[in-house]
Amino acid sequence: MTDLASPTTSGAPAAAGTGRLPGARAALRHAAPALLVYAGIRCLGIVVLAVWGWAAGKDPHQLLSARWDSLWYSRIAEDGYGYTLHLSGGKVHSDLAFFPLLPWLERTLSAVFPLSAADAGLAISAVASLFAAWAVFAVGDRVGGRRTGIALAALWAALPVGIVQSMAYSESLFTALAAWSVYCVLTGRWVWAGSLAALAGLTRPVGAAVVAAVWITAAVTLLRARRTGGKEPLARMALGVVLAPLGWLAYFAWVGVRTGSVTGYLDVQGGWGNGFDGGLAFGSFIAGRLTGSAWPAGVGLLIGVALVIRLYVAGVRQRQPLPLLVYAGVVLLLALTAKGYFGSKPRLMMPAFPLLLPLAAALARLRTARAVGTVAVVALVSALYGAFWLHGSGPP
């Protein structure tokens, strides 16, 4: 991978260097192989899930659309906010923990088409996942060329928890908004970057990572321009910087007003047993596994965390563009330092697609036949694991 520390360095098609996006048809044709590979991997995951479900006597449709968080999103879409579940042990689960963009879209789609909120959620995830894959490809294409972009989209599709991309969850929608925002930062489209960051901030709390990518890259870009005497579009950059946090801040403020507390959203998350403690709870969880009969699981967790951190360090050493490092780093930091249901951590890290860039670059250097074979094996393992996961504990 080349030195791409500058956010405006181009390894993409020639149109990227002109400051203009290519025409929609040309861009779609350029991304088509990545989108086809992505769709094929996700279809394989759904087929394996369906076969497994029929064999186990479970409805695959229900597994994808009407369990865990998807039920909360559907309820918000149908009835609005205001539902609270009181559990034993003092936990209070409020639907205010869920950001509003996905249920808003579910409500709109189900009002226009004869779809339930849950089915609208599936449709939104299906479309959003394709746009996410397109953005992931675009970033990989710009950083390392077309083969790297295709490999990056394929690896993101074949993550062990990639099945979540096909569920009525908010991960696909968030990743689409976040990845395109980061791409816009890379290409100097500051207003688009800020607007998409604001929408990402209405989708998940980790929208803060997108804001950080916009803000820190803007600050560094200005410092470099001042040092080198270069010119930057200050007005557009300033507007993008101002827009970026608006969605995230607006929802935090609304929950604060709704609950009558400045720390309202944090209090809501506390009722779910969530929050940030610097990773102490997660460390204690792993330690408990290492010292008990489930020590192999503890070892596996340590290996997984070490692999993820190593991938991030590899990205730093390969001098990935700053917005990618900031975005992936903040997503990773928030996921590893949060307490709560630890089985959800792989899902929380899923939007950090830049972590896969070193692997994508290595895959792109292989001969085509070997690369295809590698992706096929990884995709099959992902499909089998996804079916096993959803028939077991699955995402919360």
Results as ranks from 00 to 15, higher is better:
W272E: 05
T263Y: 06
V262Q: 00
A250F: 01
N274T: 10
S261Y: 04
A244K: 08
D277V: 08
G279R: 10
V257N: 02
Y251C: 00
G283F: 11
G270M: 05
N274E: 13
D267E: 14
V262F: 15
G270W: 09
L249N: 00
G278D: 09
G271H: 11
Y265G: 03
L266S: 14
F285I: 06
G271F: 09
Q269R: 14
F282D: 08
G279V: 12
S261N: 10
S284T: 15
F252G: 06
P245H: 03
A287T: 14
L280D: 15
D267L: 11
G283C: 12
A287K: 14
F282H: 15
L249G: 03
A281R: 10
R258V: 11
D267R: 13
G247A: 06
G275Q: 08
V268A: 08
G256M: 00
G275A: 07
A250R: 01
G247F: 07
L246E: 01
A287G: 15
L266P: 00
G275V: 10
G260A: 02
I286G: 09
W272L: 13
G264Y: 04
F285R: 13
G256H: 01
N274G: 13
L243K: 03
Y251W: 14
G256N: 03
W248G: 01
G247L: 04
R258H: 09
G278C: 12
G270Y: 06
V255Q: 03
D277T: 10
F276E: 02
F252R: 13
W272D: 05
I286N: 12
V268D: 06
D277A: 08
L266C: 01
G256R: 02
L266F: 13
G279H: 12
V268K: 04
W248F: 14
V268T: 06
F276C: 02
I286M: 15
L280T: 14
F276N: 10
P245A: 03
G279T: 07
D277F: 13
Y265I: 11
R258L: 08
S261H: 15
G275R: 12
Y251D: 01
G275I: 10
N274Q: 13
A253T: 07
A250I: 01
S261T: 05
W254M: 05
V262H: 00
Y265A: 05
G279L: 11
G279D: 11
F285N: 15
T259S: 12
T263C: 04
F252A: 05
A250V: 01
G260R: 06
D277Q: 09
D267A: 14
V262I: 12
A244G: 09
P245D: 02
Y265C: 04
Q269T: 07
W254P: 00
V255I: 11
L266K: 08
T263F: 14
T259M: 15
S284M: 13
A253Q: 05
G271Y: 10
A281K: 06
I286R: 10
L280S: 15
L243R: 03
L280P: 01
A281I: 07
G247R: 04
W272N: 02
Q269Y: 11
A253H: 06
F285P: 09
R258W: 11
